[in-house]
């Protein structure tokens, strides 16, 4: 069991550095580069279309569809989005919620995940099931809404958006699974040194959990950034600022929603969002979050190394 204490820097680490590369390596890498390039291009293409269209005049979009290279270039849609400055409030709100929610959520999820994977924890199956069960049965819209508004009085409160997204059964079980790959000896060695469970968790386990924290933190952050559902239920017109994606949701859905409703036969609504406005809002609302991944990626270092244990 004796292994060197060794940290591997993912950025420079090459698993094949000390072995001779065979044909199979070249084949896989070749396939890798080709497939990943093609898929990545397929992913960015629609986004370029959205950007191109957001700079195109509405008349061109209606007659010729979406545009990769804007004909009749205009920034009108962006002027609309930025007008009034409400968008900056939304940015601030979204960034705050994403930051706070991800931090608090990560802490609770990792604690719970650690406890639940401890084989000497007698309640681990009971609590796991207790948590997992909620992913199968939901109360449905009306009971949930009434509880949040009548009992918790969270209508028009940003907590109605922040709290329900803190964790999910899926993330907790995923975390539990990640922690499982940390050998039990670490906990044991901590115990031998006389550390309590909390101490073991914070001092020994957490530092080894970087990839897991990065992954789950990423999911949490994306969840907060993309959130519109809770906002659509609990943030009414009395609220000043809305999360970005909820603004986007409203802009993008309003026309379709109305067209397919009973109201469409009776109500004449003008000034529905144009296609270019939808696209421009999408670009603005996606914004800086696309740059989150490269930032998070550095934490995918092979942090879980058995080598850390001196056995």
């Amino acid at each position: 069991m004796a292994k060197k204490d060794k940290k591997i820097d993912y950025d420079t680490y090459d698993s094949s550095a000390r072995v001779k590369l065979g044909t199979s390596d070249y084949v896989i890498r070749g396939v890798g580069y080709v497939f990943v390039t093609l898929y990545a291009l397929a992913c960015i293409f629609p986004f370029l279309l959205i950007i191109g269209t957001s700079f195109t005049s509405e008349a061109v979009i209606r007659s010729a569809g979406v545009q990769l290279f804007p004909r009749d270039f205009t920034t009108e849609a962006y002027d609309m989005v930025l007008k009034g400055g409400a968008i900056w409030k939304s940015y601030l709100l979204t960034i705050l919620m994403t930051g706070i929610g991800t931090g608090v959520g990560l802490l609770i999820i990792s604690m719970t995940g650690y406890a639940l994977q401890r084989k000497d924890f007698v309640l681990r199956n009971v609590i796991s099931f207790f948590i997992y069960f909620t992913s199968l049965f939901q109360a449905g819209l009306a009971p949930y809404y009434l509880l949040m508004t009548q009992t918790y009085h969270l209508k028009d409160s940003y907590f109605a958006v922040l709290l329900p997204l803190l964790m999910s059964p899926w993330l907790i079980i995923l975390m539990k699974n990640f922690v499982k790959s940390i050998p039990f000896e670490i906990t044991e060695s901590g115990k031998i040194d006389g550390a309590g469970d909390m101490k073991i968790f914070t001092a020994l386990i957490l530092p080894m959990l970087k990839p897991a924290l990065a992954t789950i933190g990423l999911f949490l952050a994306l969840g907060y950034w993309n959130e519109w559902y809770q906002s659509s239920l609990f943030l009414s017109s009395k609220v000043d600022a809305y999360p970005l994606q909820y603004m986007l949701y409203k802009v993008v859905n309003e026309a379709n929603s109305l067209k397919n409703s009973v109201a469409a036969q009776f109500v004449t609504v003008t000034d529905l969002p144009t296609n270019s406005l939808k696209m421009a809002t999408a670009v603005v609302a996606t914004g800086p979050i696309v740059l989150l991944y490269p930032f998070v990626q550095r934490y995918f270092i092979g942090g879980i190394t058995v080598g850390a244990v001196k056995g």
Partner: peptide
Amino acid sequence: MFLPYFIS
């Protein structure tokens, strides 16, 4: 690859 996840 993450981009499609953001497109509504």
